[in-house]
């Protein structure tokens, strides 16, 4: 059967020309996603890509799977409807910082809270790209854009902190230019049962070029980031000579040998939250990798368990019973 044939990356490329700007970080993400999805053993007709509006949201058009390019900010609601209606489908959602955290912040919060089994890629470029360069809810204070000519005074969201606050069961961060890390992160997300949010630092070459260079550029990356991996010591630096220690609610840089081991499944999301807040401290490495991964009841499974229980208890409803029920009387 066709279903069992292994897919190649090429099988997942649609016949549509990719229309992102030359040099856009989206290309690398598309490439990595196609690469890891081909290896999951899931037939492409069982995959659905859902998106909202924005540059990132064109993603579904380039995947040779089922795809729904919906409306601005609402992709989580469409994805929830799709997953509830057919839990057999593998559903991925692609969104951006404007789509997911501004106009769609409410929906993103709720899909994470419910733990719908949908994988969410949040392309964060800290700018509105498709509308040509306005500040976004992740733009830094002071960013000068067309709508903030004197610099933004709008305090930004931290997407990881946001997701953790929503009770997300899987939260990770990766970088568009770090293919190996991105693929490993996407694979971990794919393997997670429940909502998985992956924030991807994505460079917009036109409107916010180099915004992540300070931490993500290849030459500084090893020194400026710390890769959180469950069960691994929190070690960073080109020479892997430094580490992080968690002391109460504080994190300190220490010699590698005294680094703590990272756990992403602590009962409280507190440690992950503390890590996510390191972003604000320029003296600390920027955490990437896996902030949180815990098992929790999955919304779509709970919904269907109730439907099945109702059918088991009452029998599958018949039209006649729908009408002829309760107190009735005859008129002859």
């Amino acid at each position: 059967m066709a279903e069992t044939q292994a897919l190649t990356k090429k099988d997942l490329k649609s016949d549509q020309d990719v229309r992102w700007c030359p040099g856009c970080g989206d290309y690398a993400i598309l490439n990595s996603a196609q690469g890891i999805l081909a290896g999951l053993g899931i037939p492409k007709h069982k995959m659905v890509f859902v998106s909202g509006i924005g540059c990132s949201s064109r993603f579904p058009y380039y995947m040779n799977t089922y795809g729904l390019h919906s409306i601005h900010g609402r992709a989580p609601a469409f994805a929830t409807g799709i997953k509830l209606a057919n839990p057999e489908l593998t559903v991925w959602l692609v969104t951006g910082d404007g789509d997911g955290l501004s106009i769609g912040g409410n929906h993103l919060a709720h899909i994470l809270r419910r733990n719908v089994d949908v994988k969410i890629l949040l392309f964060n470029n800290e700018i509105y790209g498709l509308t040509k360069g306005q500040y976004s809810p992740t733009s830094g204070i002071g960013l000068k854009t067309k709508t903030s000519p004197m610099g933004s005074v709008d305090r930004p969201f931290n997407p990881v902190s946001f997701a953790l606050g929503c009770g997300a069961t899987f939260v990770a961060r990766t970088i568009d230019t770090h293919q190996k890390h991105m693929e490993a992160t996407l694979l971990a997300a794919a393997a997670h049962k429940g909502s998985a949010l992956v924030e991807i630092y994505q460079n917009c070459v036109i409107f916010n070029d180099g915004v992540f260079d300070g931490v993500a550029e290849k030459s500084v990356r090893d020194d400026k980031t710390i890769d959180l991996q469950p069960g691994q010591p929190m070690v960073f630096g080109k020479a892997r000579d430094r580490g992080l220690r968690v002391e109460g609610f504080d994190v300190r840089v220490a010699p590698a040998e005294s680094a703590d081991t990272w756990r992403a499944d602590t009962p409280s999301a507190g440690p992950a939250f503390v890590m996510s807040q390191l972003d604000a401290d320029p003296t600390m490495p920027r955490p990437i990798g896996l902030f949180r991964r815990v098992a929790a009841p999955i919304f779509n499974e709970g919904v269907h368990a109730q439907v099945n229980a109702a059918i088991a208890k009452k029998g599958a409803g018949k039209l006649r019973d729908l009408f002829y029920t309760g107190d009735m009387w005859e008129v002859s």
Partner: peptide
């Protein structure tokens, strides 16, 4: 009406409500 196979979803708002229905 779950035993009629009805899937009911109380969405977070009116917009999510219609969007989830379109998804379904």
């Amino acid at each position: 009406y779950k035993h009629y196979g009805v899937v009911s979803f109380q969405a977070e708002d009116e917009i999510a409500a219609i969007c989830s229905a379109i998804g379904a």
